[in-house]
Each structure stands twice: as structure tokens, then as C-alpha cells.
Design a protein around this nucleic acid. Sequence first.
DNA 1: CAGGATGTTGGGTC
DNA 2: CGACCCAACATCCT
Length: 263
Amino acid sequence: MPELPDVEGHRHLLAEHVAGRTVRGVSVPDAEILVGTTPQGLGRSLRGRQAGDPVRHGKWLWEPFDGPTLVFHFRMTGTLAFGADETPDPEAGDAVLLHLDDGTLRYRTSRRLGRVWWVASADDVADVTGTLGVDVTDMGADRLAELLGHKRGGLKSALMDQELIAGLGNELVDEILWRAKLHPKTSVGDLDRDAVGDLHRRLRQVLRDSIRAGHVPSGPTWLNGQRGSDDPVCPRCHAHLDVGQVSGRTTYRCPREQPGGAL
DNA sequence: CAGGATGTTGGGTC
DNA sequence: CGACCCAACATCCT
């Protein structure tokens, strides 16, 4: 599930419940998920430290502790939760818990694909994340046009390239392309400035509504709601959707409104 | 019960 | 180097 809107929700949770609090102790029920230190090292490093303001860039999230910083990525699975319950539930995928002044932060990755990295300083975060493009929530239409101007190949691949634009995942990109009425394999070079402008407006709209919801919605007016259906149809024109693979990801497209070849 | 799944990495090819 | 493809990761859901 975790797409950018979910990660933004997790950032909000950190800002609300963790920033400004002090670490009293840690639990690491799944040490394999913790990278860059040991459970003992994590406790030694964080105990007594105060949490600063969390940062999200694309689908990456980090929390500085007055120097040492925890970097979170959720991959295909994973959540953050905060509450009074201090008890780890390893069966449910609890991996790293931080016990703070007034509650416990719980990083859970049920399929164990997510990771939490420890780095000594916020300056070292980029060593973990690698090169990231502009955060998609900070990207204006001109910037999008400029970035696409340097790219070749298919539009969906370009939008999903985290080194170009950080934050767009499979579900968001399908939703955006459907609203912009663009075929996922549209050659990037075929878009003129007006088309990029329209694409950008749709992108902003999808992001705003998704972040507001805390996830990519799947209601009746969202293409995303057709995902997983045995007979997916276009929420606007009710044509049967074309489902296939693009860039190795399951892709949905309306053959009538996003014309072009089959996926 | 086999197959597929939201993401990323690393290998390989052209 | 860029674009693209694939397999792997570990587990859950259909």
C-alpha cells in the first residue's frame, strides 16, 4: 500500500507524536530489518536523545535525533503507528519500537521487505537513499517540463523514475495518466508544453486528494478503485480497461480515453 | 493452491 | 551512458 500519500501520513504522525519527545528505550523484535547498527547500538545511541522534525522526500522518511537519524522505507509493506501499547507483536511484523516519553512508536513491516536504517548524522541520509529527484510535491509545471525534456522513452517509466522525480508510484501514475488522458507508453518527446501543463495539473489534483485521504483513494471516481477487479471498467466511460505490464508493473488504462496500442 | 502484489536493487542486454 | 528487462527480496491476499 505505501505510496507517497501514506508516507506523508506517517510523517505527520512523527511530527505530531515524536518530534520534541525524548527516547527512553528501544525494542528490536526483528533485527534483520534494522540496518547500520545493532539493537544494542540503537539503544545506546538514542536513549536520552530528543527527536527533531521529521523529513519526507519522495517515499523516504527520516527522523533526526539530535545527530543520529533513523531512515524509514516501507517498500511494498509497512506502517508506522504510535500508541500507549509498548508490547511488540513479532507475528504482525513489528520490527523496531521506540519508547518515548508518552507513548511508543512502532515500525511494522508484515512482509519484512521494509527497512529502518541508522545513520550517525542527518548528513549521511543520502548515503542510504541514493540520488533522489525533486520531491513531486515541490515540483512546478516548468520543472516537470524541464525534467521531461532531458528524458526519452515512455512517459510512465519517466514519471516512476525516482532519480528524476521522487514520490510517484505505480498506483499514482496510473491515476494521473488516466486523468490526463495519456497512454502510459506515450513517448516523452511527443508531449508539447501545453500537454505537460495539463499533465501537471492532473498530477497536483491527484496528489492533493490522495494526501488529504492518507492513501490513494479507490472510490467510484478513481481508476485506482478498479485495481484487482475481475472486470475493471473506466469509471468515466465504462469501457473495459486494458490491463498489462509497463516497466514491470501492473498497469491499467482506458482504451477509449487513453488511445494508443495495447499495453 | 498457485499466482500476483503496491517498491527497490542489482544484474544483464542492446 | 540511457533505456529496458528480469529476478530477487518475504509474506500475504485472492
